[in-house]
C-alpha cells in the first residue's frame, strides 16, 4: 500500500470530461471504476484528482494473493499483547480519503465481500474479526481500475460488482494531446515528440494481431526520455518500444524497420 498526497503539483492532461465526472462522483459519494489499457494514465489521473479534491490517497496494487484481510486489517501481537491493525481500506473508511484498488480483477474473490457494502447506499465496512461495523467517512471514496484487454478472457469483473460503479473509460490520448503529454513529461522537442506519437500509433495497429497490447503512452514517455540521452534514436526506441512489447523475432524486426522509417 502506498499513501500519497505529494506537495508537488501533479500534471495531468484531461482527455475528455473525466475530471468533471470524477468530481461529481466524489461529491455524490459514488464509487468510480476506471477501465483502460495499461499505461494510458489511470493511476496518474487518480493521483491528480486526489490532489485536486485534497483528499489523501491510499493505493493498493492488487495481486492474485491479495485477500480481504489485506484490505481490512488484521490482529497483530505486540509487546503489550494483541492489537488490531487497520488495513488500507479501513483507514480510508475511517479517516476519509480515496482508496484506489489498482487492477482489481487480480485480487482474490473474497475482496468483493468488503467492496459490495461499501459501494452501495449503505457505505459501511463490516469487520467480522472485531465485530465492528464502520460507517464510511464523508470524504471516503472507492476507486477501482482494471484493464479490459487480454485479461478479460481469463478474469472479468462480475456484473454484480461492475454495476455498483460510475465507470470511466480511458484510452490512449489523441495524437495532439499525447504529444503535449510527452513534451510536458520529458521536455522532448515538439517535432520529435510528434514523430514518436505517429510511431506509437503505427505500433498500436498491431494490437490483437501480433501484439497483446499496443505501445502505451507510458512507453512513449520512456522512449522520449531515452532519446534525450546519449543513445541513438533507434536504440532508444528499440529498448522502449520494440523489446518490451514482443518476444517474437519477426515482430521485433518489423518494428525496428518501422522505427527506422520514422526517424
Amino acid at each position: 500500500m502506498t499513501q500519497t498526497n505529494a506537495d508537488q503539483p501533479i500534471h495531468y492532461q484531461a482527455q475528455k470530461s473525466e475530471c468533471e465526472i470524477f468530481e461529481a462522483a466524489a461529491n455524490n459519494k459514488l464509487p468510480v471504476l476506471l477501465k483502460g489499457p495499461t499505461g494510458c494514465g489511470k493511476t496518474r489521473f487518480v493521483e491528480y484528482m486526489a490532489q485536486q479534491l485534497n483528499r489523501p490517497l491510499f493505493t493498493v496494487a492488487c495481486h492474485d494473493d491479495l485477500s480481504a484481510t489485506d484490505l481490512v486489517g488484521r490482529h497483530l501481537i505486540g509487546a503489550s499483547g494483541t492489537h488490531w491493525q487497520d488495513g488500507p481500506l479501513t483507514r480510508a473508511v475511517r479517516e476519509g480519503g480515496i482508496c484506489y484498488l489498482d487492477e482489481v480483477v487480480e485480487a482474490r474473490k473474497d475482496t468483493t465481500v468488503v467492496i459490495h457494502p461499501l459501494t452501495d447506499h449503505r457505505r459501511v465496512l463490516p469487520i467480522d474479526r472485531t465485530g465492528e461495523q464502520i460507517q464510511a467517512h464523508e470524504d471516503f471514496m472507492l476507486v477501482v481500475s482494471y484493464n479490459p484487454g487480454y485479461q478479460n478472457l481469463i478474469k472479468g469483473l462480475k456484473p454484480s460488482t461492475r454495476q455498483r460503479f460510475i465507470a470511466l473509460e480511458f484510452d490512449y490520448p489523441l495524437a495532439k494531446l499525447e504529444t503535449q503529454v510527452i513534451c510536458q513529461e520529458t521536455g522532448l522537442d515538439k517535432q520529435r515528440a510528434e514523430q514518436l506519437v505517429l510511431l506509437g500509433q503505427d505500433i498500436r495497429r498491431l494490437k490483437d494481431h501480433d501484439l497483446e497490447e499496443g505501445a502505451s503512452t507510458r512507453l512513449l514517455i520512456y522512449a522520449a526520455k531515452l532519446m534525450q540521452t546519449t543513445l541513438t534514436t533507434t536504440q532508444a526506441c528499440m529498448a522502449s518500444l520494440a523489446q518490451p512489447l514482443s518476444d517474437d523475432h519477426d515482430t521485433i524486426k518489423a518494428i525496428e524497420r518501422l522505427i527506422n522509417a520514422h526517424f
Binding site: 503505427d202 505500433i203 495497429r205 498491431l206 490483437d208 494481431h209 501480433d210 519477426d250 515482430t251 524486426k253 518489423a254 518494428i255 524497420r257 518501422l258 522509417a261
Partner: peptide, 15 residues
Amino acid sequence: QSQLSTYFHCLGGAP
C-alpha cells in the same frame, strides 16, 4: 513474409 506482414499492418494495412 511474416516481417513484411507485420510491417504492412503497422503502417495501416487492413488487419
